[in-house]
Nucleic acid binder design. Structure first.
Lengths: 234, 234
DNA sequence: TTGGGCAAAATTGTCGACAATCTTGTTTCA
DNA sequence: TGAAACAAGATTGTCGACAATTTTGCCCAA
């Protein structure tokens, strides 16, 4: 029997395509991979220490989530959502997330609340750091954690995908806004959930999403090119 | 220059993986491909007249939508959602679709309304036919058409995926229920939209989804095996 | 007859090679 | 000098081959 051989020089023991998708998605959520960045197959092969087939499958999945764009015979690029798509994503979040907080009010236990409070503490700590990456990522992740408290895997996955696309949109249209999520709105949402006040929690998540969207200027910006090796290497 | 050669003997001129995904999804929505059905790669290659790579990529996309299940070294099978997943899917639809009808009330024009009315007529006609396939498919498609009237591609795609999974769930847990969607509920929803009564439309879509879910018995059923060649051949 | 064990066939997972296409750099001519 | 044409290199798309695993069919013994 021939066991799987670790072809990569790094610590990763075995990497499947889902792991590659997550790594790239995380980089997008931290806005380290700007829209338009070319994802060369051979580069990704070296970075993750896998064969080309795995990389191509991962890129297909990312394209299916509209996180990357596959151009025929040209390769894969981090997607560049248009204004219409930005509106659609926020509208979808307005449709889903209020129901999520409603379910969270009904289902979140003390442990869930405590976990979310800890998460907000991490967010605040990250906001103080010089580098913004953790702050940006944690800010998006809060919404995913919130969805997880519903115990609904389908809703959680929808939110995860929409949050990732939102990061892309903020990176593209977010101008010089202060941050992806205004200061203490997460805390206010969580407070309403903790108080079992569904109506207020729903109102606050609506306002929160509206504020994020209002922070965009919807002016097409230029594109950047970065070295994906520097960004994705762990 | 070497133009693409039509390798299939059938009429299909050129088939990409998205087309394969749609064909299989349609078969699932019409409940012609029951849960647990094995999708052999070589069989799909012959059916669609494409190489194995295309088939494998299509199966990966279908697995990503939880329509098929990929088991390592075993192959691809039409997914067999559990009770928990069934609950989650309906909960997600309860979260999304009320907002969709709200948007539909605000945005649907006369032409959209007319299209939906025509669709309902087709549904009623199909209900009278001996074969149920068209009725089942049209019944699910109504929800997709409704989503399309919002003009929101993100929401439309979410609904399309959830409807396909719902078909799978109905096929698995739907017992001997009369149909996937009770008689005239679609018409009532559309009437409320036409009357611009958002509150009533929302209430009716909630009730509609609840009725569909109530028609399930949530008792694990046996599995069937069918010949995919007979089903997917056009 | 029935169940376990074994070999053959079928199926999936992976890799390498090659063709087609795109990109880049250079040359050439107006 | 500048732009078009061309050639070299790089990248993507596709196919075939092979190994690993699973499934199937068969034989044999209890």
């Amino acid at each position: 029997m021939l066991k799987a051989v670790d072809r990569s020089g790094s610590s990763a023991p075995q990497i499947d395509e889902q792991a590659i998708v997550e790594r790239i998605t995380a980089a997008v959520m931290e806005q380290r991979l700007p829209h338009g960045t070319k994802l060369t197959e051979t580069a990704l092969c070296e970075i993750f220490g896998v064969g080309r087939m795995r990389v191509r499958r991962a890129l297909l999945l990312l394209a299916n989530q509209d996180i990357v764009e596959l151009r025929s015979n040209r390769g894969a690029f981090i997607a560049r959502p248009g204004q219409g798509e930005a509106r659609d994503v926020f509208e979808a979040r307005h449709a889903i997330e209020p129901d999520i907080v409603r379910l969270a009010v009904a289902r979140a236990g003390k442990q869930d609340i405590a976990g979310l409070e800890e998460h907000i503490r991490l967010e605040n700590a990250a906001r103080a750091e010089p580098t913004r990456r953790d702050a940006i990522r944690l800010s998006g992740e809060f919404h995913v954690r919130l969805a997880e408290t519903t115990g609904n895997r389908v809703l959680t996955r929808l939110v995860r995908e929409l949050v990732a696309r939102t990061s892309l949109i903020i990176g593209l249209f977010g101008g010089a806004g202060p941050s992806s999520c205004p200061e203490d709105e997460h805390a206010k949402i969580l407070a309403a959930i903790k108080a079992k006040d569904a109506a207020q929690a729903i109102e606050r998540i609506h306002d929160h999403l509206t504020h994020i969207e209002a922070g965009l200027d919807l002016t097409g910006s230029g594109q950047a090119q970065v070295d994906i090796r520097t960004i994705l290497a762990e």
